[in-house]
Design a protein around this nucleic acid. Sequence first.
DNA 1: TTACATTATATAGCAGGCTAATGAATTGTG
DNA 2: CACAATTCATTAGCCTGCTATATAATGTAA
Lengths: 165, 165
Amino acid sequence: MKSCTTDAKGLLKIEDQMCFALYSTSRAITKQYAPLLAKLDVTYPQYLTLMVLWQRDGILVQEIASSLEIDQATATPLIQRLEKSGIVTRQRSKEDERKVQVFLTAKGRDLYKLALSVPHDLGCAIGVDDKLAKKLIKEANSIKRSIQRIGSATDDKDLDQVNTG
Amino acid sequence: MKSCTTDAKGLLKIEDQMCFALYSTSRAITKQYAPLLAKLDVTYPQYLTLMVLWQRDGILVQEIASSLEIDQATATPLIQRLEKSGIVTRQRSKEDERKVQVFLTAKGRDLYKLALSVPHDLGCAIGVDDKLAKKLIKEANSIKRSIQRIGSATDDKDLDQVNTG
DNA sequence: TTACATTATATAGCAGGCTAATGAATTGTG
DNA sequence: CACAATTCATTAGCCTGCTATATAATGTAA
């Protein structure tokens, strides 16, 4: 009788896990980005970094990290690689020497024109209609808000739960 | 006039990107898993691997890879780390020496009992109701299907698109 | 049966991700 | 002012992920 050490009842199935659905789908889409971003010679996280810089050039390492919702220690080498590619430059702030500002180079600014076709091309590659995309963004954001809400509730008292795995 | 090299019109904003929403949300949830899985002394991908093995012990490396929707070259070292932790054993198949079967050890089987509380505890940590979770799984799966559909359509002729970024 | 393709796994090299620890600059406080 | 705490960035060490390549076993065709 192995019923205690195997999942005969199917209580822990990978295809029922919300996190797995998001994790595998985001990787599937990222894989579709790859050939498009290859034309700009950047990776997906580097592309996200550029998006932020095209909005606000000269922002700090920490601001890029929080925009991408990644750790600062992940952002530093990411930006260093962009610097090595000649897409950005880094420069210590004069007012506060702890801070490092990230600036687009001419090459980095020029990539913007190439990037403009990426969303359209990706739409072709994944064939997802705009309505579903917007709905998913909304739902994903509501999950992140919920996590933040619970996480900040140091006094976690009456938090009831469900099996959302 | 920098309007050609910066995104004044907001055409490429990170918060409008569906892929970013999935990518950042999946990492946010994975971070909530970490303390729960620390009790089993496994990572999230290792936990997914265990889920598959609790369903079908003794399956091949390639079967684990396809279940997790990761590359086979990612699966091998993942399984090797589980082996080093004493959670699984690997063994060349007798009938076909190319194949490697992965078996749970007693320790690996025992972890199942501990894992049973993970979905509940994660629900507490992220506070997402079951209905939303199921909806997201469905939507994510429909995206993956759409990608497969287009990807397999070598004769991609009349595929119209949208900006789903 | 030799030759060639295919299959299954493993390895190498690179780019993220994370936590933890380090270092340098700034801020806050007694 | 001095010293502690904080802040910002970097580095180190680990675990994913990927592509490309290698290696061995199997399948297939001439």
